[in-house]
Amino acid sequence: MSEQINELFQQSQNEFIAAVRDGREQEIARSISLLEDKSPLSREIMKQLYQNFNKPYIIGITGPAGSGKSSLLNLMLKEWLKEPELKIAVIAVDPTSQRSGGAFLGDRIRMKDINNDQRIFIRSMASRGKMGGVNSAVYDTAVIMAAAGYEMIVIETVGVGQTEIDVVSLADTTLVVTVPEAGDEIQIFKSELMEVGDIFILNKDDLPRAAKMEVLLKSNFSLIETEKLNRKNEYESKGSWQSVLLKTSVLNNHGIKDLVKAVENHYNYLRNNNILEQNKKLQLKKHLLNLLQSEILEKIILEFDQEDKLDKYLRDILSGEASPYQLIEEFIDKNLTIQVDL
């Protein structure tokens, strides 16, 4: 009996996988949800999809909230669609509210020009858990989309925290969007965004402070280039690419063609220098580490965060009987033993 059920399950699963590979939106969407919800079914699906793993070309686009990422993407997608038969998927990540667990996913509003095109698939994704899990979900979503025949995948994130920077590190080409009112020199120095971009975009260049911001960005730029030369190994994946700064305005539809050209240049640069192939391995490595990290964290924290146990820890600390370090050390010694053969 159970064998029969197994067989039936196997059969419908094969049909499901075939539908994903065939590019059917409903099945693609479903497999992304299963992945996000960490359903056991998702493991089976991913196992099959990884079997012939097509690495897509991944573009990351990041920048502060309200800098115009989605609007720019809307215009870029319009240009890219001029390429016949190119299928493009977008993963638009927005933050989950830590307080309610809910999320307001509104990136699609800005992509009205293209969302009817049959060659575009847009998926909004909330960052969900606190433990960096979004990175692995994003990567595996890209794997699903690639299996479904999307050759180019754009990941859009708000560039504020470490998580978002990490998401971008899964990309082959990284676009960093900034705006004239993004702050002064000090803000630029602070921002890690400046270190991750292949192409920098000063959007809203119709605003009065644009020229001043351009000067600031350019002067900061040269320092980064020198830094890259000094630490060549760490920037291995970036190779000898010279970052560029482009000015755009969505309002005036200005600079978009140059931007699309710059992305194409970067793609050609990656391909001609065999970097796309190297990236595949580097990104997979990051994905593996992300997965490991989020799985371990989740298990450990689940174990740690049990009401009575945690309450005892807290009482011990508050009464002065134990220090946080002592408790953590004990907890780790008890729960996390890894045999290391030397």
Partner: peptide, 18 residues
């Protein structure tokens, strides 16, 4: 959203198809 759901908001003027 505040009740903990993920809300996809597509704004004004959508066609049935969209």
């Amino acid at each position: 959203k505040e009740a903990g759901m993920e809300v996809i908001y597509t704004g004004l003027r959508n066609t049935a198809e969209e």
